[in-house]
Design a protein around this nucleic acid. Sequence first.
RNA 1: GCGCGAUUAGCUCAGUUGGUAGAGCAACCCAUUUACACUGGGAAGGUCGCAGGUUCAAGUCCUGCAUCGCGCACCA
Length: 722
Amino acid sequence: MNEKFLKPYNPTETEDNIYKEWIDSGYFNPDNLPERHKTPYSIVLPPPNVTGTLHMGHAAMLAIEDILIRYKRLRGYKTLWIPGTDHAAIATQSKVEKEIEKKEGKRRHDIGREELLNRINIFAQQSHDTIVGQVKKMGASIDWSREAFTLDEKRTKAVRTAFKMMYDLGLIYRGNRIINWDPKGQTTISDDEIVYTERPTKIYTFKYSKDFPISIATTRPETKVGDTAVAVHPEDARYMAYIGKTFEVDFAGVILKIKVVGDIAVDPAYGTGAVGVTPAHSSIDADIASRHGLQSIQVINEFAKMMPNTGIVKDLKVLEAREKIVEWLKENNLLEKEEESLQNISTAERTGAVIEPLPKLQWFIAVNKKFKKGDREVTLKELMISAVKDEKIKIVPERFDKTYFNWIDNLRDWCISRQIWYGHRIPVWYKNNGKTDEIFVGTDAPEGLEWKQDEDTLDTWFSSGLWTFSTLGWPEKTKDLEEYHPNAVLETGYDILFFWVARMILMTECLLDTIPFKTIYLHGLVRTAKGEKMSKSKPETNIDPLDMIKKYGADATRLSLIIGNGPGNDLKISEDKVKGYKHFANKIWNITRFVLTSVENEKIEKDFSKYSIKDIELIKEIDGIISEITNDIENFRLYLAAEKLYHYTWHRFADIILEESKEILKSGSDEEKKSRKQFLLHTLSTLLITLHPFIPYVTEEIWKDMPIENRGMLIIAQWPIK
RNA sequence: GCGCGAUUAGCUCAGUUGGUAGAGCAACCCAUUUACACUGGGAAGGUCGCAGGUUCAAGUCCUGCAUCGCGCACCA
């Protein structure tokens, strides 16, 4: 027996070596797998943002995906797992901007586009290297030869091709619409990048002027200088007489022309039953305005300040303007009521700034527009729905179907242009011939110096939406694309179901006429032992995966993230839990020590069949367990499979079977001894194979000393059934 | 407002088609060069959130409620 078994198992001494051996073997790359690996099985790594380091959530994701990949590899599939990182446009740029401002006191425009992009690229490269190191530490059996980045050359080609195709289909359009403006980040953001926070607010009920016949209520009096109408329900007896009339009022130094319109969107029972319509600063009001042909007057600018056309509040910040308007209303006896209330306020996910709805010319993807697909007409929304409804794509756990459909029901056109510099520049060029504007959309710049490219960049989710196929070489017709698309599984957190998963379905259906993956496996969020979200602002609550790996090993870290956690459920993790599984790695180590010592020079005989009656019973038992856990893994019950293996290994195989073996090996007949030795070797080897997806390092290290002919590496051993 | 989830031992959670409640960790008692103290054995611990219903039988199915968490919408 190898002397290494005389000491306790030491993960830090072992793991890096083993990882290197795997890399050297080439088996992470499906092209190098032995002949029997025929059927493709592919997963693409949800690319971590290059904004820093990986956290426990990423560790859980890596563990789950590596388990699936290793399991399938052992079962003889041609497994491909593609790594990559995400440039994460806004997130990365704002992070670097913040640092520069802190250190040098400079803002983005002080530095300039080119220099800022330089700095961001340097930062992104560093983050990338850190992330790659962390992914390796977790033991991920991922194909580094196919690594991708959402902003690299190949992906840029994919992005531009996708943009062009969707533009030609009429699905990408440029329009002047009310968008969500982030005054701090100085950019547009999509509906999904908004975070709602509940804050106390005041509702003011007032009249524009003494002789205006209808009272209205608002939480934002400062926007009222941009009102062009009052909307009432068309059948509201109180106001019907006024519908169609226009009133001119002097409101806080601004002359407003307020038309009374009848619109069924107004709930007569709510508030005063009348709504002041501000078409430039509310998308609902903009809808009303478009139905009645009302004028839109912008009164707030990109810096959340009042514009020059706003009378007594001009140039004030929004909140100051609000106070001043309320004061003015009081002075003029127009304020009727002031009530305390709670309001869901929209803030930008990245900067925390309060969102200012503004009218702006932006690029959108039309989700409700019919377009030709083969011989039928469909909308992107319909495609997204049918992919899941017709069970072409299965979501695990199933309950997220409802969440998915609910989101699609409420989906509006997706605003894809951003006023930031880091990202895919919009592949659109403009030329002004003095009179008319010409526009060019394409994958490369048009000839001629007079063409100017759009200043904006694309929402980062536009490029990640292409991820399952852009990583396989699309738009080229590659062999990879043919073989590995659609992916078998997409594994990711439920928190990006809308951001990412839904958009991949949208993009793939639209551009490739197929689904991006067959199964969506959603994992939960990793929380602290107290159930709080781990956050950078509270480092003491954070558990760093690298730290855990250093102290307890990657195998223990992986198990702690798997056991006790079903799909879609949040997971509470504590250091104690990780520690507990370190003991397990050592337990197998010692089991091996015992088995190898006890069997002396016995080797595994491939077709050994002369088992004793007692050992036949034991073999039936382990066979039953293997078929159960195989079934569990196939159905994504990884937590159950891991737990069952853990339990059998420790409390059945070690505690009971090894104990009784001592007696048999001491005083049994020669046949009984031989049978038991073979049983121990066979079972240990079976356990190593089946445990390998969960705890790859220690099992691979032990495997080296198993007395098996033509052993090979454990990573490509054969799963015990089929 | 609509929807989702959770509620089971001190803690974290299993309990897959209904058949006498399970695991890990912690705590308690015993054992001490035993393959392994990163150990073994033992005992203790739960009216399965509450109230109804279906059933021979409900932690599991149905209805209602409560508490906590989450998503979406509304937000005049």
